[in-house]
């Protein structure tokens, strides 16, 4: 076993987990508190990527561009909530799926018209290009370390917001029992708008920090959306803690599976069969994980209390 490769893949899986958490955190809040199935959450991720790329190009500074992106995402989220999603709360999930799916198609084509088929991207400044040597001969790209640290910081801030502030208390209460919160005279409409805005900022942040790696292209959010749904189902819908643990777990299993399953299969299959089966099995792993979790704990690993 190559321990350096193992350690590097662990790091890669952790980084994917952090990114998944950022997308899933907003999704789980919106689904858990507002009972809204928002398929357009991946679209918010795409918004973050394109806004960040555009701002970075305009200001010629990675830091300024990224700082500008976050308030823009908040405003975008609030506009979408007020303009489109607010009308959907009373409807059933099927209507919500249809309307938010419409948003996906609309924005994918709009972005294609505005930014062109080649999409856009962010070039890293020279101080972030390169790799760092960690003890034991492990080397990792510098920017991926930035992603992990900034993602963990956001997770910490979110934890403090949810567990230590009044807004956070309302959010937790909303996740546990929506009707009771509004019966107690809390302005639930305002709370919903804020939660959606927060979710938009988190998804936008994820799209923003990944753009220097993956580049921004129309339709980039859909692959992320599916994994994020897997994460919130595993973690328990409405639970931030569940989303964090499930995201890290999903990131690690997905990356480890893709890295080592073909090698593992080759120990008892011929190499042609292993090369064919490897990608198929590794792309199924996270769904198998979800199925197992659902079989044992149908409401996820950490369902919010009272839900």
């Amino acid at each position: 076993m190559d321990y350096v490769l193992l350690a590097e893949q662990f790091f890669n899986g952790f980084q994917l987990g952090i990114l998944l958490f950022l997308v899933a955190a907003g999704l789980t809040l919106i689904f858990g508190i507002m009972d809204l199935v928002n398929l357009a959450h991946g679209t918010l991720y795409m918004f973050g990527a394109f806004f960040a790329a555009t701002f970075v190009q305009l200001t010629d500074s990675l830091v300024f561009g990224m700082i500008l992106t976050l308030p823009t995402m908040l405003v975008t989220g609030i506009i979408l909530e007020l303009g489109v999603l607010r009308t959907l709360y009373e409807r059933d999930h099927l209507d919500q799926v249809l309307a938010t799916f419409g948003l996906i198609i609309f924005f994918n084509e709009l972005f294609l018209i505005v930014w062109g088929a080649g999409g856009t991207g962010i070039n890293l400044p020279s101080y972030l290009i390169g790799t760092s040597e960690l003890p034991g001969g492990i080397s990792v790209p510098d920017y991926r370390i930035v992603i992990i640290i900034s993602g963990l910081l956001v997770a910490l801030l979110l934890y403090l917001l949810v567990s230590k502030t009044r807004i956070g208390m309302l959010i937790r209460a909303g996740a546990s029992n929506r009707e009771m919160v509004s019966a107690l005279g809390i302005n639930i409409k305002l709370l919903f708008t804020l939660v959606f805005g927060l979710g938009a900022v988190l998804a936008g942040f994820a799209g923003m920090i990944i753009t220097p790696i993956t580049q921004a292209e129309s339709g980039m959010g859909e692959g992320m959306l599916i994994l994020a749904f897997v994460v919130i189902v595993i973690g328990g819908i409405g639970s931030i803690k569940g989303a964090f643990i499930a995201a890290i777990l999903t990131g690690l299993i997905d990356t480890m599976g893709r890295s080592f399953i073909d090698v593992a299969l080759m120990s008892f299959m011929d190499s042609v069969a292993a090369e064919t089966a490897g990608p198929a099995i590794s792309s199924m792993l996270v769904y198998i994980l979800m199925a197992v979790v659902l079989a044992i704990k149908p409401s996820g690993l950490f369902p919010p209390k009272g839900a």
Partner: peptide
């Protein structure tokens, strides 16, 4: 869209 695990390999 992210090749991190392939690049390590």
């Amino acid at each position: 869209r992210d090749w991190s695990s392939d690049l390590s390999k």
